[in-house]
Design a protein around this nucleic acid. Structure first.
Length: 428
RNA sequence: GGAGGGCUGGCUGAGCGGCCGAAAGCGACGGUCUUGAAAACCGUUAGUGCGGUAACCCCGUACUCAAGGGUUCGAAUCCCUUGCCCUCCGCCA
């Protein structure tokens, strides 16, 4: 939720942000209008309510006829107060509805435009030249099946399209990767967390996932709970309605959880293998920081993501996501995309967002500064997901279908240096 | 699944339908005293919206005693619903 005061004081800033996102700047004026109406309604209500309260005190002292007369006056007053309160409440609801459609104010420097208008900040590492090696790169599913690591057929049999089993070395590889990610996070001062994956509506709404992309989220109708698409949700909710002490620096958490995504509207996209799936695991960094520390913390999260990519020896690029491709909560987002040899394109492996105070405001996460309370900033970033297996298999494959284990992962696989194809394939 | 008990400020814990946004204690903060500290003593100490205002000082006002409804001129207090916590019984592991 954006700060109404900011919107009132500097509406042009918000209008500009809306334009950069490709959203409707006139929403700002709608908000200003509704806000004025709400305040007027509130003033009317409060004036009458104050009268009602003081009348109530007179009633308590009056006697006889005077009292009877006060009571009848009180009765009509009560009806009027109730009506005015209903007006004020209705105005507040209407205002909230429109406010919730405005995304976070983007940070200066964020490129304008949509999905394809990102700016590449840098390339790290060099993709292998498979042609020069005289090799046709196998894709991750072919490799995964040779290694008996991935079984999408049985995933589909049991759960449907976009489900899979990680089997044998595939399961071990995921555990190794995510454990390495947890270790990296802990070394950087993050508290490891295993989080709930079902959350209440107000938490889901507070994190901004029920806006434009609400149809991406699984909902359990019978229990009025949502399945999270990332542990960011549970970690953002962790300190909801709390006042934090950030005097000693940001609060940092690393969440390990299953993630669920409906992938509505992505029919036919990435249907092969485990690139785009309904359920996967992820280690996610999450920081609560002072507003003025948020940009520095964002850089820190990005640096940790890059360290993790270096650990698994993947070539990648870093992009500064365009305003139109930001989630509603994010004020800026950096993605790291690894090279995908089989498709000769980049594939998003990490994403780190600076949500400034947008999430924390609705979730009520504040800090005390010189006796005052104020909303904190929240940030999140990916440190490892099931999808990384895709890039690891493809980039480190060898001519015979075996896969070299990057050195950084070897300690997590009992020193294993090479994943070797199984004669029979996955689960056969 | 059944039967009870509970939910009040940072914490503990009082609270008769009106004088209660709420006693008291603890904690925290400031001060006096002290070479310094402790102790003692004095004082301060919920949040949020709105209005006044240049102003996040201050003043006024409203809301908040788990949440949402209701009764009443008036609700922390009475009634209903929901959630959560605790105890006991049953059931499943």
């Amino acid at each position: 939720m954006i700060d109404l005061r900011v919107l009132r004081d500097t509406p042009d800033v918000v209008r500009t942000s809306q334009r950069l996102r490709g959203d409707d700047p006139s929403l700002v004026d709608a908000v200003l209008d509704l806000d004025a109406r709400r305040r007027a309604a509130l003033t009317d209500y409060e004036r009458l309510r104050a009268e009602q309260k003081s009348l109530g005190k007179e009633v308590a002292q009056a006697k006889g006829d005077a009292k009877a007369e006060l009571l009848t006056r009180g009765k009509t007053l009560a009806d009027q107060v109730k009506a005015l309160q209903a007006d004020a409440d209705a105005a507040a609801v209407e205002l909230d509805e429109v406010v919730s459609r405005i995304g976070n104010v983007v940070i200066d420097g964020v490129p304008a435009g949509g999905e394809d208008d990102y700016v590449v900040l840098r390339h790290i590492g060099t993709p292998r030249d498979f042609a020069a090696e005289g090799l046709r790169p196998r894709d991750h599913l072919e490799l995964g099946e040779m290694l008996a690591a991935i079984d999408t057929e049985r995933g589909a049999k049991v759960s449907g399209a976009r489900f899979y089993y990680l089997t044998g070395i595939g399961a071990r590889l995921e555990l190794a990767l995510l454990t390495a990610a947890m270790d990296k996070a802990m070394a950087a001062g993050f508290t490891p967390m295993i989080t709930p994956t079902l959350v209440k509506p107000e938490i889901m709404r507070g994190t901004g996932f029920l806006g434009a992309h609400a149809d991406e989220v699984y909902r359990l109708e019978a229990d009025d709970l949502y399945l999270v698409g990332t542990s960011e949700v549970a970690l953002a909710g962790y300190h909801s309605d709390e006042i934090l002490d950030l005097a000693d620096g940001p609060r940092r958490y690393a969440g390990w959880s299953a993630c669920y995504r409906r992938e509505a509207g992505s029919y036919g996209k990435d249907t092969r293998g485990i690139i785009r799936v309904h359920q996967f695991h992820k280690v996610e960094m999450f920081s609560y920081a002072k507003v003025e520390d948020a940009q520095a913390e964002h850089a820190r999260l990005l640096a940790l993501e890059e360290e993790m990519l270096a650990l698994v020896e993947l070539p990648y690029r870093v992009i500064d996501t365009a305003a139109g491709d930001l989630g509603s909560s994010a004020a800026r987002k950096f993605d790291c995309e690894a090279w995908l040899p089989s498709q000769e394109r980049f594939l998003e492996l990490t994403s780190t967002s600076n949500c400034t105070t947008f999430q924390a405001r609705r979730l009520g996460v504040r800090e005390r500064v010189e006796g005052e309370t104020r909303t904190v900033a929240t940030l999140n970033g990916t440190l490892g997901t099931t999808r990384w297996i895709v890039a690891i298999l493809e980039n480190h494959q060898q001519a015979d279908g075996s896969v070299r284990v990057p050195e950084g992962l070897r300690p997590y696989l009992g020193g294993l240096e090479v994943l070797t194809p199984q004669a029979s394939g996955a689960g056969a």
